[in-house]
């Protein structure tokens, strides 16, 4: 049996907008296993981004507990959250969020700066990571000189470089054409299958969500339903690992 990576217990998140309290999440209880490929779907305003921010340690729940590898992240300080994001989580965003006018290599090295990895070692790791996403020999291109698909590959390389257990992908194909979307999703799928990295994917496109082996549908701050894909390979892999 694979170990539990994420355990969410009755998570709520309330925003104070002026005088009014808005409940973005109203009691989410869920579990993600190591090596899962989880899709989170829902219309805009459903709370899926809020959930993604909490799982990604960018935000803390108002109530409830969040355990990441049995550590109660919901009780972490800002500093501990920053360290957790740095060492254990990789982010891939819809709008890439790369530093402009900077080379691909420098972007990929960025998380290693905050991980106190020595410069030389960081450079090697960044090269390896870029090679993994198929960007060998493009390391020194500036981010404003490459295509959207390449930008997202750089972002994935950056997410991978710290060797995280979890990759959070927030609408990673939202700004890409279909062909490039398929390529990018292929990278996520192979990272999940071959490296056993847990991937959490937020999307509102069903065909993108289809890459996941479980999909939860969020509506009005609660999990409406869960789809579990009967994927033979997945199940057999799950049994193996």
């Amino acid at each position: 049996m694979r170990p539990v990576l994420i355990r969410l217990e009755d998570i709520t998140r309330t925003y104070h907008v002026g005088e009014v309290d808005v409940d973005a999440l109203c009691g989410i209880t869920y579990q993600v296993l190591q090596g899962d490929f989880l899709g989170i779907m829902g219309p805009s305003g459903s709370g899926k981004s809020t959930l993604m921010n909490i799982i990604g340690c960018l935000d803390r729940p108002t109530n409830g507990s969040y355990f990441l590898s049995n550590e109660e992240v919901s009780k972490f300080s800002k500093r501990q959250l920053a360290i957790t994001r740095n060492k254990r989580i990789g982010f891939v965003f819809q709008s890439f969020n790369l530093l402009s006018r900077t080379t691909a290599l420098e972007n990929v090295e960025l998380p290693l700066l905050y991980a106190d990895i020595p410069t030389k070692e960081a450079r090697e790791l960044a090269y390896k990571s870029l090679e993994l996403v198929g960007l060998k020999d493009r390391e020194l291109r500036k981010t404003n000189q490459i295509s959207g698909g390449e930008m997202q590959r750089v972002a994935i390389a950056r997410a991978l470089v710290t060797n995280p257990t979890l990759i959070m992908a927030d609408e990673p194909t939202g700004n890409l054409d279909t062909k490039t979307s398929i390529e990018i999703m292929g990278i996520f799928a192979s990272l999940n299958k071959e490296k056993g990295i847990t991937v959490i994917l937020v999307t509102h496109e069903a065909d993108i969500a289809a890459y996941a082996n479980r999909v939860i549908h969020i509506r009005d701050g609660v999990i409406e339903r869960e789809d579990i894909k009967r994927d033979i390979r997945k199940i057999s892999k799950g049994e193996v690992s």
Binding site: L58, N97, L110
Partner: peptide, 16 residues
């Protein structure tokens, strides 16, 4: 601000 957000998401602490 965006750059600061990126750095923070990637693990920069307040002090950094």
């Amino acid at each position: 601000i965006r750059e600061i957000g990126i750095r923070m998401a990637l693990g920069a602490q307040e002090i950094d």
